[in-house]
Nucleic acid binder design. Structure first.
Lengths: 212, 212
DNA sequence: TCTGATATAATTGTCCTGCAATTGACAATG
DNA sequence: CATTGTCAATTGCAGGACAATTATATCAGA
C-alpha cells in the first residue's frame, strides 16, 4: 500500500511544464501562439524564473521555440518536420517491436492481446476519439514491453510533437487501418518473431504515403 | 562571408550548458560527481539562476541527475544503460545510413570517401585518439548526409551520454575494427544501396558483444 | 504613398536578495 | 539498537531590478 505514489512531490517547475505540454498536445495552444513569460507567470500563479525553466524544458522537447530577446512561441511544423516525425517514429517503433518480440513473456503477450481486443471492440462502435486513444495505448504498450527506457523517452518526445501537429491541423489522424496490420504486428510479437514484428511495426506507421 | 556565425551571441545559459557538457563528455567531471549550484555559479562567474537553467538543460539530456532538494550529480550509467545506448545508437545510425544512401549525391559521396580515406590514413599512424575522432567524424557525417534534423539531435544525445561513459570508464573504445566494416558501409551508401547500408551500419556499431 | 530613420514599448537575459522546504548526517535519547 | 531531534547544506521558489535586444509605432521627407 504505497501511498507515496499519490502524493505530488514534483517540483512546480516540472508541473508547470506538464500543464503547458498538455495544453499544447491537446491543441488548446496552437502552433504559432506566442508565450510571454510574465503573462504565463501570472496565469499559473508562479514566479517568472519557474516558468522560464519550464519553457526551456519544453524547448528541448521541441514543443516551443524561442527567438532570443523576442519571445517564445508554440513550435510550428512544416512538411519536412512532419516527415521527420513519421520516419523517426517508424524507426523507433520498429525497434521497440523487435525488442518486445525478443523478450515477450506470457503476461506481456496477454496484455498485448487484450489491448488489441479492446481496440477491435472500440472500432465496431466507431467512436473515433476512443479508437485513437486505444490505438495510441497499444503502441505505447509495445514500447513498454521493449523494456528500453531511453527508447521510451525518445518515442515520447516524437509522439508529443506529432500529437501537437495533429491536434492543431485538426486532422483526425486515421487510426491506421486498425484491422490487419495491427493483427499481424501483435501476432508477430506474441510469437516472438522479431524480424516480422519490426517489419509490421514499420508498415503500420507508414500509412504516411497520402501525406507526401 | 557571414561572420555572425562565429560571433558568440548565444545566451549565457546555453553557453554554460555547453561548458559543463564538454567537461562531462571529456571526462573532467566523472559520473557521480556532485554539482552544487552556488559553487558552479562562482566558478563560471554567473548567477545561480543561469546555472540552474543550464543544469536543467543537461538534465533533460541525461548527463546530470537531480534528486529534489538534495542536489545534482553527473549521471552514473550501469550495464543496462550502456546496453540501451548501444542499441539505440545502432538503430539511429542504421536509419541514418539508409537515408543517406537513398539521397546520396556526388558531393556527398566525395565527402564520405574522403572522410574514410582520412580514417584509413590515421589508422596506419596508430594514434588512437586521432583515430577515435576520425571515426566519430565519419559517423557524424553519415548522420548529416541523412538530412534529418531530429535524427541528428537524437543521435547527439545518445552520443554524448555514450562518450561520457567511455571517458569515465577510461575504456579506449576500440575504433570499431576500422577496416572492412567501414569500407562496406561507405561503399553501400555511395552506391545508394539503402538496405545494405542500414545493415552494415548496424553491424558496425554492434561490436558490443564483448561487453555483455 | 512609400521609404527610411527614430523614438518608444515590449520582452527576454541576467543578476541579486531572501526565505521556505527538503534532505542527509549526526547526536541524543529511550 | 531503533527512534527521534537538531542542525547545516542545498535546492525550490519568489520578487525586484536593470540591461540587452527586438518589435512596433511614429513621423519627416522624397
Amino acid at each position: 500500500m504505497n501511498k507515496s505514489a499519490k502524493i505530488s512531490k514534483r517540483s512546480l517547475e516540472s508541473q508547470a511544464a506538464d500543464l503547458m505540454r498538455e495544453d499544447i498536445v491537446n491543441g488548446n495552444l496552437t502552433p504559432g501562439t506566442r508565450l510571454v513569460e510574465t503573462t504565463l507567470a501570472k496565469e499559473y500563479g508562479l514566479s517568472r524564473g519557474t516558468i522560464r525553466i519550464a519553457l526551456h524544458q519544453l524547448g528541448t522537447e521541441g514543443l516551443v521555440t524561442q527567438v532570443p530577446y523576442a519571445g517564445w512561441s508554440v513550435t510550428e511544423l512544416n512538411d519536412q518536420d512532419l516527415w521527420e516525425l513519421y520516419t523517426l517514429r517508424a524507426t523507433l517503433e520498429g525497434m521497440a517491436a523487435r525488442l518486445a518480440a525478443e523478450r515477450i513473456c506470457e503476461e506481456g503477450a496477454d496484455r498485448l492481446r487484450e489491448a488489441y481486443q479492446q481496440l477491435l471492440a472500440l472500432c465496431k462502435l466507431g467512436d473515433l476519439k476512443a479508437i485513437t486513444r486505444a490505438d495510441l495505448d497499444l503502441h505505447k504498450l509495445i514500447i513498454e514491453l521493449s523494456s528500453h527506457s531511453r527508447l521510451a523517452s525518445q518515442y515520447q518526445l516524437v509522439e508529443n510533437q506529432f500529437l501537437a501537429y495533429i491536434a492543431a491541423a485538426n486532422r483526425d489522424f486515421e487510426p491506421e487501418s486498425v484491422g490487419l496490420s495491427h493483427a499481424a504486428l501483435v501476432e508477430a510479437i506474441c510469437a516472438g518473431e522479431s524480424d516480422r514484428a519490426e517489419t509490421e511495426a514499420i508498415r503500420n506507421i507508414t500509412g504516411f504515403e497520402e501525406l507526401r
